[in-house]
Each structure stands twice: as structure tokens, then as C-alpha cells.
């Protein structure tokens, strides 16, 4: 399926989601309350079948915390991007997609560790790299580490 066909397909099946054509992927932006449902449909819909979550990144852009999901279909060979931004910075919460794509298990633990986004219904949400008693979330733009100062 080419870029335009996928764009049309996503537009027709995800009318409530903002669908834009990016430089590389079709980019969908979804509100936190619709995230899990849209992700589930992306994975299970017979024309999408995005069964492979190949990258999940936490971002802190324009003062908002969010998660970017890169998903691909191993059968239909197309890919798209799903973006979701949390409503607030302190106590940012999103739904976990672990039950849809188990690969999210590790990605979400990493995002929780470094950006402090909590994932609802994640089976084992702990810090993955930093110590359990570490304070703060280093990849946030407002993070200041007084011990190891890195700034530009």
C-alpha cells in the first residue's frame, strides 16, 4: 500500500483522529483518552494490521510531554506514526499499550524512568536504568542535575 492509499484509509477509519502527512510517515495525533482504543484498532483492523511496534519514544517538545509510537505491519508492509501528548506535565498519565504490543513493556518503563510519564495498566512500571531512589526525570527539559551538569 502506498503513502496516499494509507492516508485515505486512515482518514476514513479514524475520523476522530488528526491525520497528517509527514515527510516520512503518516502522522496521527490522538488525545490521551482515545489512545488505547485507536492503538487497538490500528493493530487489529484488517486493513491496518499494525502488529509491530518498532519504536516508542518519549518526547518533551514545546513544553509538553508526549509519546511517539512508530508502528508497522509485518504482513501489509506499511508503517505510520501515532503521537499522543499528556494533558499536564506534573503527574502526566497515558494508557499503556502493553496489552496490544508487548514490546511496549520495556519502552514504557524507559519513558517512565527518563521522562516521568506514568502508564496506566502497565504490569510492572519501575525505573529501568536509574536507581529506584533517583529523584527527577533527566530527559525533561526543565531537569537540572546539580551533580553532573550538562548544558549548552
Amino acid at each position: 500500500m502506498n503513502h496516499n492509499e494509507l492516508h485515505q484509509l486512515l482518514l476514513s477509519h479514524f475520523s476522530e483522529v488528526e491525520v497528517a502527512v509527514g515527510s516520512q510517515f503518516i502522522e496521527m495525533t490522538v488525545a490521551p483518552e482515545g489512545l488505547h482504543e485507536v492503538a487497538k484498532r490500528l493493530c487489529e483492523h484488517h486493513a491496518c494490521r499494525m502488529d509491530f511496534l518498532f519504536c516508542q519514544s518519549g518526547v518533551d517538545v514545546n513544553g509538553r510531554l508526549g509519546v511517539v509510537y512508530h508502528v508497522r505491519s509485518t504482513t501489509l508492509k506499511h508503517a505510520c506514526v501515532l503521537k499522543c501528548f499528556a494533558e499536564q506535565r506534573e503527574g502526566a498519565v497515558l494508557d499503556s499499550v502493553y496489552d496490544i504490543w508487548p514490546a511496549a513493556y520495556a519502552f514504557e518503563r524507559e519513558i517512565y524512568d527518563l521522562l516521568g510519564i506514568t502508564f496506566h495498566h502497565h504490569p510492572d512500571l519501575r525505573r529501568i536504568f536509574l536507581e529506584d531512589d533517583y529523584r527527577g526525570f533527566p530527559l525533561r527539559k526543565d531537569f537540572i542535575d546539580e551533580i553532573n551538569i550538562i548544558h549548552n
Binding site: 518498532f54 519504536c55 519514544s57 518519549g58 518526547v59 518533551d60 517538545v61 511517539v68 512508530h70 514490546a103 520495556a106 524507559e110 530527559l139 549548552n152
Partner: peptide
């Protein structure tokens, strides 16, 4: 599969670089 995800705001430093490293997955 190694993936590099870069977010830029047009400055000389990237805003965010994420490495989707194969071993992690």
C-alpha cells in the same frame, strides 16, 4: 534493527534523539 529518531527545532543541537537499539528490545 537500529532506529534513530531525531526531533529538531532548527537549531544546531537536536531537541531529542532516541535510539531504538536492537538489544534493548
Amino acid at each position: 534493527e537500529l532506529g534513530v529518531y531525531m526531533v529538531s527545532d532548527g537549531e544546531k543541537y537536536p531537541v531529542r534523539v532516541k535510539f531504538r537499539s536492537p538489544n534493548f528490545s
